[in-house]
Every structure is written in C-alpha cells, then in structure tokens.
Write a protein that binds this DNA or RNA. Sequence first.
DNA 1: ATAGAGATGGCCT
DNA 2: GGCCATCTCTATT
Length: 198
Amino acid sequence: MKPYAPLPEDFFQQPTLLLAEALLGCLLIKETEEGIASGYIVETEAYMGPEDRAAHSFGNRRTKRTEIMFNEPGFVYTYVMHTHCLVNVVSGPKEKPEAVLIRGIEPVDGLDLMKKRRKMDDLKNLTNGPGKLTKALNITIDDYGRRFTSPPLMIAKGIPPGKVTRGKRIGIDNSGDARNYPWRFWIAENPYVSRNRK
DNA sequence: ATAGAGATGGCCT
DNA sequence: GGCCATCTCTATT
C-alpha cells in the first residue's frame, strides 16, 4: 500500500460544480485503529446552497447541522439520514454554504475490512451508495468538522476518471424544480455508481 | 428489471 | 410531530 498524500487546500477552492466533477477519480481514505480503507470516488452530487431547494442550506438555513457549510471549502460535512451517515465535502467560499455529496466509490484498499463492516462479500454492493460507503469506510458523525487534508479522513490524488456523465440528482423528489438540475456526476460505465439513470 | 413498503433515528419547527 | 440527499427485502413483470 503506497503512502497517501492528501490534496492541498487550494484544490477545494474551485467552484462547486467544477469541484464535484474534479473529485471523480480521487481517492477517499479513512484511517482507523482497525486499519486503512479507501476507494476512488466515482459518483458525486453538488448542492448549491441558498438557491438550491434540495440543499440543507437552502435559503441560508443556518443550524447546528448546516453550520459547517458556511466555512471555507475542504471541511467534512457528515449527517445522519435514517440509519445511515452521509459524507459531503464543504465547498464554495466562506459564508457560501455549498457542498458536494459523495455517492459512490470503487474499493481500493482494505477490502477485507470493508466486507467485515458491511457484513457481506459482494464486492459490487460494498460501496455503491452514499450510506454504504460510509459504513464500509467507517465514516461517522464524529468526522463532522474535520478537514479532508489530514488524517484520519482524507482525499488524495487518484486516477484519471475517463468519461464523465452528468444528470439529475437522486432522492430529492420533494424539491420542486431543483430535482431536475443536472448536478449529479459519475464515471461512465463504472460498476460502483449507485444507480443508472439520467 | 422494476416498484413499493417498512425500518428507523436525529434534526427541526 | 413531521420530515427526510437511504437501504434492503418482497412481490411482481
């Protein structure tokens, strides 16, 4: 396993839609006492803050949960959805509450650890969804407010993503027109994308 | 292959 | 008390 070099802070300082696409192919890494697990990011969604009805920060809603999004980019935003934890990259300049949701990764290191945590052997189903990958990597609400530029939770240079496709975001059907915005990005033909649709 | 429903828990009003 | 940026299982085509 090669040593990990987290991406520099300025990587996160690009506009949110560009960052969402730039994250594809990057390596998401979590270090724990049990060991290291990582995977290439293959699917993301951009949430554009005040004007985006699907975003938690719609209308500049500022709560205990959304507070981290008002920081400068590169912070970790985790939150709990039903029984699952979801992980976002805080994006946009300070006071602009935007974020990128990580929806799927392709397993790289720590395969056995991921299988153990997910209690299954089916490689294809280990990390192909936002709630699945956090469980496989052991990303939790405790990671809230950390930075992706240092351990234990990091984003590092990965591989060139190849062909990228974009389409509507998933699971936000109660968000008016925002549901149709093409702010979901994924690596074309990649088997670890949560689901196929435009 | 696709559709529908239940589980389930924290956050917000 | 209502609302979900989900997952898994079942039933049906």
